[in-house]
Write a protein that binds this DNA or RNA. Structure first.
Lengths: 220, 220
DNA sequence: CGACACGTTGAGATATATCAAACGTGGTGG
DNA sequence: CCACCACGTTTGATATATCTCAACGTGTCG
């Protein structure tokens, strides 16, 4: 049903702004390939990512009821998106309250992930933050069939990680070295390898419940 | 319509847990008086608040589609809540897609506030974080008719503030002194006074757009 | 009056930021 | 095919914000 609502598929270049905060919106994006981010810049141009999205995510569904976003959306890598006009969503939700509920549910998962990010920023140290993010990403990619649980592709820079974890890129570099030396995790040239997921999760105080993924055995 | 869905009103004692993460839920709460919080505790019992709620907020509406919450909900002060059974919400949303949309919208405002909190934790220093939280609370209370824009009641402890801002209570104490000395804001014995809201908002890089409050003149 | 919670202060420790430089490395044009 | 450039990574030295621990003050309530 959602597929029938797709107006157009589009390929996006890496590192482009897709939606700006405050722009009036008439469509939302279903991400089919690549990585997108949602972020807020401060007055000096320092950036805080508030979400990342991977294949399968409905990226700015928040913009459908909200009409305008409070943050920017941009590509991190090259990406492919399916464009879903809000008029189609109107049609669909009017027809099927059940699907409407599912869309609502999807935005609430986003909110739950926001909360986990708050915990990460508020209560974890630098190593814990990076480890927590990598655990989360591993779990989400596993659910999307893009990780085998021990290694996955993640074409982000260390600066990207710093903007996710509220750190500097220099410090992220040192954190990654420490994770490597402790054999918890190797992040190098767009590839993440996690030799001991359990140990990494413990270091990160990571508990995947907030992702509301069925089949929890996939995650552990 | 919502009012007709209220099954019961209840008075709650301060500092009580109302809902625990993972509990199956069959009702949600409409807060009519007092302050509630949503929070995540770490392994050592250190707490990160992920939201606070004031009179007029629909507190755990997220729990309606999600079925279980990923975080705890508790009272900070004595409070009064109206209990809305999920069965009633089923009835209402089936009857009125428009109201269903409004409920969805309300949860998305919560998510937008989560994002502002992420920005606060990730990119602001200690003074900025506290200032940002006080600006936000002022704006929200103003919208609820509980602040005149320059002073309002806020019966939280410095430890509460520290659990909101990702700081220690000791450091919050020093931050509050600094805000006082710079005549930006006085937080004392449950009362917040903001002599120069514009200066405080500038220090906090606070922009109220994310609250999606109509009548923006109320906020500035 | 004493107990307890909350607030305040100080000294010292530590994590993270800042600044600056060097090092790879993949891509591009000559 | 090589030289070079841009971008990301790595390292070192130093600065600074925040934490930790411990003590003391203050108000409230039984």
């Amino acid at each position: 049903m959602l597929e029938s609502a797709v107006a157009e598929e589009r390929a996006l270049e890496p590192r482009k702004i897709i939606v700006r905060a405050g722009d009036p919106l008439s469509q939302s994006l279903l991400l089919t390939e690549g990585i997108l981010s949602r972020y807020i810049d401060d007055r000096h141009g320092h950036r805080q990512l508030v979400a990342i999205h991977v294949a399968g995510d409905f990226v700015d569904l928040h913009g459908y009821p909200l009409k305008v976003l409070d943050h920017d959306v941009g590509t991190m890598t090259a990406a492919k998106v399916a464009i879903v006009p809000h008029a189609e969503l109107d049609r669909i939700t009017a027809q099927s309250p059940e699907l409407a509920r599912k869309l609502w549910y999807a935005t609430l998962i986003d909110a739950a992930i926001h909360r986990a990010w708050l915990f990460r920023l508020g209560r974890l140290d630098a190593v814990g933050r990076v480890a927590h993010f990598l655990c989360e990403t591993n779990a989400r990619l596993m659910a999307a069939g893009l990780s085998d649980g021990h290694s996955f592709s993640l074409p982000l820079t260390q600066t990207d990680l710093s903007e996710i974890c509220g750190l500097t890129n220099v410090h992220v570099n040192r954190v990654l070295r420490q994770l490597r030396e402790e054999r918890l995790c190797v992040f190098r040239s767009s590839l993440v390898e996690i030799p001991d997921l359990e140990k990494l999760a413990a270091r990160a105080q990571f508990d995947p419940d907030y992702l509301y993924i069925e089949a929890p055995e996939l995650v552990s």
